[in-house]
C-alpha cells in the first residue's frame, strides 16, 4: 500500500525540482543575481525529493491513524508549515561574498511552496478512490 504513496512522493518531488530549476533560470535572467552558491541543481533536486517523500510518509501515517480526518490534518499541516517556512529565506544571512542578498527571497520564497503544490497537484493520480 505504501508503494503508491512512495511513487506519489517521488513523482511530485521530480515535478517540484523541475519547477524549481525552471524558476531559478527565469529568476537569474530577470535579475542577473547569481545565488548558485546557495541554491544549486543538487540542492533543488534533493530538497524537493526529500520534502515530497516526507509528505508521503507523513500522509501514510496520518491516514493510517485517523482515516479521513488524517487527510484534513495533513493538508492543514503542510499548508501551515509551507507558509511558516517563508521566514527561512527572508531571515537567513547569506555569505558576504554573495551580491544582492535582497533579491534572494524573490528566488527562494516561491520555491518553498513547490513541494506542497506538486504533491497536492498529483494527489488525484495516486488516490486509490479514482
Amino acid at each position: 500500500m505504501f508503494k503508491n504513496h512512495f511513487y506519489h512522493g517521488l513523482t511530485s518531488g521530480i515535478m517540484a525540482a523541475l519547477a524549481a530549476i525552471i524558476y531559478s533560470r527565469i529568476h537569474f535572467f530577470a535579475t542577473q543575481a547569481d545565488f548558485s552558491g546557495i541554491i544549486n541543481l543538487g540542492t533543488m533536486i534533493s530538497l524537493n525529493l526529500i520534502g515530497c517523500l516526507i509528505f508521503s510518509i507523513v500522509y501514510y501515517f496520518f491516514t493510517g491513524m485517523w482515516k479521513k480526518k488524517g487527510i484534513i490534518v495533513f493538508h492543514l499541516l503542510i499548508t501551515i508549515l509551507s507558509f511558516a517556512a517563508v521566514i527561512i529565506p527572508i531571515s537567513i544571512s547569506l555569505p558576504l561574498t554573495v551580491k544582492n542578498p535582497e533579491l534572494f527571497p524573490g528566488l527562494a520564497v516561491p520555491m518553498i511552496f513547490f513541494p506542497a503544490l506538486a504533491w497536492f497537484t498529483l494527489k488525484p493520480l495516486f488516490n486509490s478512490d479514482f
Partner: peptide, 10 residues
C-alpha cells in the same frame, strides 16, 4: 552596508 540579508540591510 551588507549584512548578507536584504531585509537587515534595509
Amino acid at each position: 552596508i551588507n549584512t548578507g540579508n536584504g531585509m537587515k540591510n534595509t
